[in-house]
């Protein structure tokens, strides 16, 4: 018998009486001002949230960041934003984005309760950019802020397969004596722009 069949058989032999799935339809935590909550939690995990009226404001705000100003290699997936120094589409091997200092990427929505932003690789050829860039800026329409993770999953569909991840703040580690160090392997800074006018 194949391992598959023997494992399944062993499980079936010991499967006990079925219990039902619980309902997820509950009064889960919501916030009076989800954007405010998102901002507070994101700061508590080492990130930063900036609200802007329009996309055109973002370049000016980015310029205020020393890590943006000093970035030699910049990447962006949003037209007109982030002063990219090269075109991502021309790159075939993900290893070639190793030297990106600052990436400006689109996020889909934000979660107020935990400061997370849902990002995918739908418009991004190399998903590694989220993790390999030294500094990351995510852009989200400010109407896309949900209260909690239950609302988040209501928005998500995984049909057809795609990569997606919740990112909450910059990469971090506390593996050396529980001292929090920002910038473990991935981004050393993380800023989220919430934009008023939809794009």
């Amino acid at each position: 018998m194949s391992s598959r069949d023997s494992v399944l058989k062993a499980i079936r032999k010991s499967q006990r009486e079925a219990t039902p799935l619980p309902t997820l339809d509950q009064n889960w935590l919501t916030f009076d001002d989800p954007i405010d909550q998102f901002t507070t939690v994101l700061e508590s995990v080492g990130g930063k949230c900036i609200q802007v009226k329009s996309l055109s404001e973002i370049n000016d705000r980015l310029a205020e960041f020393p890590q943006f100003e000093s970035a030699n290699v910049r990447a962006s997936t949003i037209e007109g934003l982030g002063l990219p120094t090269f075109s991502l589409d021309e790159i075939d091997d993900p290893h070639d984005v190793e030297n990106v200092d600052f990436a400006v990427l689109a996020g889909e929505f934000a979660v107020a309760e935990n400061g997370a932003v849902w990002v995918t690789d739908e418009t991004l050829k190399h998903r590694v950019l989220h993790f390999i860039t030294q500094h990351l800026a995510l852009i989200i329409p400010n109407k896309n802020v949900v209260n909690n993770m239950h609302e988040a999953y209501k928005r998500l569909s995984f049909e057809g397969g795609r990569f997606g991840t919740f990112i909450s703040g910059p990469s971090k580690t506390a593996d050396i004596e529980q001292s929090l160090v920002i910038g473990a392997h991935g981004p050393r800074s993380h800023v989220v722009f919430l934009v008023d006018d939809a794009f």
Binding site: V45, F163, F166, S168
Partner: peptide, 17 residues
């Protein structure tokens, strides 16, 4: 686990890239 609201990365892999 660590008293964080969520881990920094919660990655969902659906099929290979």
């Amino acid at each position: 686990a660590t008293g964080q609201p969520i881990t920094t990365y919660s990655s969902h892999f659906h099929g290979p890239r």
